[in-house]
């Protein structure tokens, strides 16, 4: 959750008028694909019961395609539903998926890890000006104050490489990169100060594992953190085990994370988890030039090596 939003620029609405045409385009495309029979299901978003909310939807008949929407509340990264953890959906055959730019990065990552083949999925991309951050009231429109922190620094508003792109964006507001600023602030602290920062946050963790369960890359059928013989990480929600869990989680996502920040959004205890992912992404970019992108890469930065990799830290 973005608690720094207040101190920045005056709250102004963000133009999301294109979401209506995006919704129309998604509905039309979904209906066409389902009628043709080229896909068995379309994974998209529909309205929740509460006004202004949205939730994932799996549509299997052309008539139901009219339920699909795109709005500033379409926060989920639906790539999750194509992973092993949710394999039931893919058993049905080829599926189409509605994806924002950030979600396509996750799809590309899954393809790179041989979890998904490009030809198995139809990507219905959306031109996205941003979605709401957690904590935003359900009824309010998208503004510069309630926009998700990741969206402030988005570079893939209109993604490439999809099968279709719904909607088109007009000019987007320039937003302060709050997450980058927060990361820089933490980096400037002493290790002891950073330790107390994370200790405070992790101590609140209740180990609901929402961070793991919403992550498209946490698709292991047996998480090492669930094992007890040997036990890598204590399963009790105490500060010690929580710290270990979040370190292990961040390490296992290093070089794989597509920075969709779903972990942070899903966290009911407001732990700024994406800062860890972001930090690792930044380091791996510096060290090995790796960056999560829209195109699948055969190997991630920690799955390959160069003989002349930096080893200045090794005696």
């Amino acid at each position: 959750m973005n608690n720094m939003a207040q101190k920045i620029e005056a709250t102004t609405p963000i133009d999301t008028s294109s979401y209506a045409s995006a919704t129309e385009a998604i509905r039309a495309e979904a209906a066409r694909l389902l009628t043709e029979g080229s896909v068995t299901a379309v994974i998209g978003y529909r309205s929740g019961k509460r006004a202004g909310t949205a939730m994932p939807a799996i549509v299997t008949s052309p008539e139901k395609a009219a339920e699909l929407i795109f709005s500033p509340s379409c926060v989920n990264n639906l790539a999750l539903y194509l992973t092993k953890a949710k394999k039931d959906i893919r058993k049905t055959g080829k599926v189409a998926i509605v994806a924002k730019g950030c979600d396509i990065k996750a799809l590309a990552g899954l393809m790179g890890e041989s979890q998904l083949k490009r030809e198995e999925v139809v990507i219905l991309a959306v031109a996205c000006a941003g979605v709401k951050g957690s904590g935003a009231a359900t009824g309010e429109p998208l503004t510069t104050a309630n926009i998700a922190r990741k969206c402030r620094e988005c570079t893939v508003h209109t993604p490439q490489g999809a099968d279709s792109v719904a909607g088109s964006l007009s000019t987007l507001p320039e937003l302060a990169p709050l997450e980058a600023e927060e990361l820089a602030r933490l980096e400037a602290l002493t290790p002891a100060e950073r330790w107390s920062f994370w200790k405070k946050h992790f101590s609140r963790c209740v180990r609901c594992l929402a961070c793991r369960q919403v992550c498209p890359f946490c698709y292991c059928e047996q998480c090492m953190c669930d094992r007890n013989r040997p036990q890598a990480v204590e399963t009790t929600p105490r500060p010690a085990g929580n710290m270990a869990w979040h370190i292990v989680r961040a390490m296992h996502l290093s070089g794989r994370c597509a920075s969709c920040a779903e972990c942070e959004r899903a966290c009911p205890m407001d732990i700024p988890l994406n800062l860890l992912n972001r930090k690792m992404a930044q380091e791996l970019k510096e060290l090995y030039g790796h960056e999560a992108g829209l195109k699948p890469k055969e190997k991630g930065p920690l799955a390959e090596y160069r003989e002349d990799d930096d080893q200045s830290f090794i005696k």
Partner: peptide, 20 residues
């Protein structure tokens, strides 16, 4: 079909009382 299998609902709930 949509449930991701986390424990957020149970852990925030006043009445859920399962323990390990």
């Amino acid at each position: 079909d949509l449930c991701v299998g986390c424990g957020a609902c149970a852990f925030l709930c006043p009445a859920c009382h399962c323990f390990d």
